[in-house]
């Protein structure tokens, strides 16, 4: 930029110019669309040029009584287990294993090679992961059931059985997710002073006591970040459901984002779809705010 403009930019007000592009972009992509979404949620509307009929809060009342919506929320809890709880726990164990045992006793190169392998599914497009697993889980000639057959067992219809499908989806999500907490926790563990372990060992603390008493408290901030971001991600899960099950069988794997999608683009119930997505946005904000508040309180203590 030429020097002629410099004095103008030095005025305190000059800073506002820098916020202008993101302000416009935010309005166009987030602010106005989200506002419109809330507005649509107050109507019965088939979308497009169909007439919009005012419905007040009735969509919200209907949602509250909608069994399918509650099923989708219950499935979100399964998603949280598959994306937050299990990968965080396994990630902690593997991170401790790679850092403490493999890295120190078998060499850092093997440890970083294994870390890259565990992380690999994380960079996969989720649609591609979905396709890979829809074949692996295929009941008649998928990899898992063929393997079970060779052992003489009859594998179940993983994605076709309403009691089982959600667990099959969870299996894929766990596989997909493990690398994320692992990489973060490994970096965090490298912060732990080895002398602390030695001191603890001299005091007679076993391996488990060392991990619980020294490693966990040190990497608490990272655990919080992982739990927070993964929880938000779990409440947004969409592609795995669309590709693996399409919400089926018998609606047993519907999640909120997919339920909204179906209302928007398959059932032509745009008003109702907007209601679902508005409620989900509020649920996510509330949960994130609660977690942040809880963490602040913990830090203060």
């Amino acid at each position: 930029m030429s020097n002629g403009l410099a004095p103008k930019l030095r005025r305190p007000s000059g800073y506002w110019l820098y916020l202008l592009p993101i302000f416009i972009g935010f309005l166009a992509v987030v602010g106005i669309p989200f506002g419109m979404n809330i507005y649509y949620s107050l109507f019965r509307w088939k979308g497009g040029t169909a007439p919009m009929r005012w419905n007040g809060l009735n969509n919200y009342v209907q949602l509250f009584e909608d069994v399918e919506f509650w099923t989708s929320l219950r499935n979100s809890i399964f998603m949280v287990v598959a994306i937050v709880v299990i990968p965080t726990a396994i990630g902690l164990l593997l991170a401790a294993l790679l850092t403490e045992t493999i890295g120190r006793r078998f060499g850092p190169r093997i440890a970083s090679f294994l870390r890259a392998t565990y992380y690999l599914p994380q960079i996969l497009p989720i649609a591609v992961a979905g396709f890979m697993w829809s074949w692996i889980l295929d009941p008649s000639n998928g990899a898992i059931n063929t393997f079970l057959q060779s052992l003489g067992a009859d594998g179940p219809d993983w994605l076709g059985n309403p009691d089982l499908a959600i667990y099959a989806v969870m299996l894929m999500l766990i596989w997909l997710q493990i690398g994320y907490p692992l990489v973060i926790f490994m970096a965090a563990l490298s912060r732990v002073d080895p002398e602390l372990y030695e001191a603890a060992a001299l005091d007679g603390a076993g391996k488990w006591r060392q991990v619980l008493a020294i490693s966990l408290p040190t990497i608490r901030p990272e655990i919080f970040i992982v739990v927070l971001t993964a929880t938000v991600a779990a409440l947004k899960v969409f592609a795995p459901i669309l590709i693996l099950t399409g919400g089926g069988p018998e609606g047993s794997t519907v999640v909120p984002s997919y339920y909204a999608y179906r209302n928007f683009f398959e059932l032509s119930q745009v008003g109702y779809g907007s209601t679902i997505s508005t409620v989900m946005a509020l649920v996510i904000f509330a949960i994130a705010a609660l977690m942040l508040w809880w963490q602040r309180r913990q830090e203060a203590q």
């Binding site: 935010f26 669309p33 979404n37 969409f238 999608y261 928007f264 745009v270 989900m280």
Partner: peptide
């Protein structure tokens, strides 16, 4: 804070207006 909220917003809460837009 507003930007952070934007990153948490589920995409289904934007998709129909974006589709329309």
């Amino acid at each position: 804070a507003v930007l952070l909220i934007a990153t948490m917003l589920p995409h289904e809460a934007l998709i129909y207006p974006l589709f329309y837009g």
